[in-house]
Amino acid sequence: MNIRVSDPAAIEVRDLTVAYRDKPVLWDIDLTVPSGVLMAVVGPNGAGKTTFVKALLDLLKISAGRIRFFGSPYEACRQDIAYVPQRGSVDWDFPTSVLDVVMMGRYGQLGWIRRPGRRERERAREALRRVGMEDFAHRQIRQLSGGQQQRVFLARALVQDARIYLMDEPLQGVDAVTERAIIDLLRELRERGRTLLVVHHDLQTVTEYFDHVMLLNVRRIASGPVDEAFTPDNLRLAYGGRIAFLRSADAAGPSDAIAP
């Protein structure tokens, strides 16, 4: 018999529980993210989306559970994982330039004390070109608009040259043109075999932008390919039936409206 051992999943989460004081923020989450997918994480406010991403990155203490990336624990493959935090998590009035921020993505590989040099600058410029911000390299970061800030963070993750990208609301507060550009970039990364886990807030665009989805509300409500997991029933479970969600006519499945 020919037993084929399949490659380990890009991200494998088992029984993940995170509690703040006595209150569980994430409860007993199992999730498998296959390699090379573009997965959205959606759920209502306070569902624990950001907490989930931070737990994956070992940025906060987990109460229980096991997390593996390509079969290894986080510490063993840190270099393979890039992080795009929420735009509002830093002070954009900080006295530094766009190019400097993007080069920070290389600090991990540079090692202690060593300064970023010409090679780092070139990689940062290249990343800025890919997000359409090459003309802004020497701009002060406080002069950027929201969409530009978001693209600078994306460029900083690009120079990490990772296999897995964890992104917290990269489309939050960006205009329609920037949103398209970012989505094209995410798809390009997927075409190159990268795995992307993206916290997303706009239910209307999930089917259009993503191929996989996880519905989260403290517990994992559902996960998998969008056409299997992103169903009205699951949405009702995740959002508690409080939303009116209109599926666009061209989306797969029957047209549904969930109303309270």
Partner: peptide, 22 residues
């Protein structure tokens, strides 16, 4: 001056710094 880039990262985005392994 020696630890310029580490201190800059600490001041600007310490969480990102941790994900880099610093």
């Amino acid at each position: 001056a020696l630890f310029w880039k580490e201190l800059k990262l600490l001041a600007f985005d310490p969480e990102f710094g941790r994900t880099l392994g610093l």
